[in-house]
Design a protein around this nucleic acid. Structure first.
Lengths: 109, 109
DNA sequence: TGAACATATGAGCAATCGTTCATATGATAA
DNA sequence: TTATCATATGAACGATTGCTCATATGTTCA
């Protein structure tokens, strides 16, 4: 410790979410913290897209994209539907757009 | 590649931000992607706080907190002021709160 | 059934990350 | 100046991450 902080700590501590939620928040933002995944989310911004289209668009291997889509899906950021051999992914949530938009604003002002 | 995607790729590609911005977005969210840094930002949610108070609050070493504050400052998420020996940190931006709030909403619904 | 296509997945490896430990910097007070 | 307090920083190490490569799964069509 160091100098005295009075009642400040107790007050702030009372307003903090539970540790598990803080962990989940970190894990969620970790998914946003990679350029490849950001590109994938932007690819799906307007409309759904199949895996190989995403791969071609962002210039990455089908395998790499598939691995990242798995992360995104685990975080409930994308959803998918099958149509024959093809699987189409889409953003599952408006939060994706608003989170990215807030980040965008932070950078460009 | 694989099957044909017609004009879809060109259309979506035209709407994508420049690579450098996408990289910056990923780097920004990477800073949110750690529980310790999330805790620090929550600690500063209401008011500024000195380093040792943050360390005591979240139960981490002064050194660890200082390292993370450096990351947060490099991303323009916190700012600081000196008062004698003590240095007070605060959130530098309302985007911090709104980004975390969006993440929170995504998790809790 | 077998071939071709679209996607998923496991292992392995280089790179990045977050903490610890020791030490440096910077400010105050005696 | 010297001692002490508050914070910052560099090196080192274990843990996690994202890609590649090879291969597996699942679907369609002949």
């Amino acid at each position: 410790m160091a100098h005295d902080h009075g009642a400040l700590l107790d007050h702030v501590k009372a307003d903090m979410p539970a540790d598990e939620l803080l962990q989940d928040l970190g894990d969620l933002f970790k998914v946003f913290g990679d350029t490849t995944r950001i590109k994938i989310m932007y690819a799906l911004y307007e409309d759904e897209m199949c895996v190989c289209a995403i791969a071609e668009l962002i210039g990455m291997t089908q395998s790499a994209v598939s691995h990242q889509l798995k992360s995104l899906k685990a975080a409930n950021l994308v959803a998918s539907r099958r149509e024959g051999k093809t699987i189409y992914y889409r953003l599952s949530d408006d939060h994706v757009k608003s989170i990215i938009a807030q980040g965008y604003e932070h950078l460009t002002e």
